[in-house]
Design a protein around this nucleic acid. Structure first.
Length: 201
DNA sequence: ATCAAGATTACCT
DNA sequence: GGTAATCTTGATA
């Protein structure tokens, strides 16, 4: 078997916090034509519609958030602030409405194409490189993840996540989440300590 | 029909 | 550190 194996359904249908922590270090991957673009997941946040007021799904199913109610293994993409998309990995069983927001990636493959989608040019500065995928809306732009990608099956061939070694527990930082106004004290943000592509300390 | 808020980012001082 | 940009969604009438 290939060393870089695609995560299967079983990975995603587990507890949202377990999935969130285990996603760190794995390769978020998209195939566009013949080109593969990928980045190592370095920062995530968990959202749980059953007890978490900050979750889009807290108030029940709506047209916007319905993908969050799928069984684990779907990609939930939402549009916000009139200009940005963010991507989540849906976890757990059907109707649990729990998902992991992908907040930051470290670019690995297809950096030229990411650069084109993100900045629409070829040459970028060192600073622009660091900013390529170090935020939830930035990485969506670099991976061209938009409305049409909402509901994508992560066990399919378009967007998927590749296995790699788990990150040592001692290297995972746990903090409160960023940019929310409700349930602000829940320690549901996980990131790889000292990684330069984490969005914010 | 109207309206406020938003799981952000880029650019300004 | 502050805030404009920009528009969809969901709630209320």
């Amino acid at each position: 078997m290939d060393k870089k194996q695609k995560l299967s359904k079983d990975f995603y249908t587990r507890d949202v916090h377990t999935v969130a922590k285990e996603l760190l270090g794995k390769l978020f991957t998209r195939k566009i034509g013949k080109t593969v673009i990928s980045g190592m997941i370095v920062e995530v946040e968990a959202y749980d519609g059953s007890i978490d007021e900050a979750s889009h799904s807290f108030g029940g199913k709506t047209n916007r958030n319905k993908v969050m109610f799928n069984e684990g293994g779907s990609l939930y993409v939402y549009f916000t602030y009139g200009m940005h998309f963010c991507a989540n990995v849906v976890t757990g069983r059907e109707d649990e409405s729990k998902a992991v927001l992908i907040r930051a990636l470290q670019p690995v493959d297809g950096i030229d194409l990411m650069t084109k989608y993100r900045y629409n040019k070829k040459e970028i500065t060192r600073n622009e490189f660091v900013n390529l995928t170090n935020g939830p809306a930035k990485l969506c732009k670099a991976f061209k993840i938009e409305r049409e990608q909402n509901g994508t099956d992560l066990t399919g061939g378009e967007i998927f996540i590749l296995k790699s070694a788990n990150i040592n527990k001692a290297k995972i930082a746990v903090t409160t989440r960023i940019g929310i106004k409700k349930s602000v004290d829940l320690p549901w943000r996980y990131y790889i300590k000292d990684n330069p592509f984490v969005s914010k300390k």
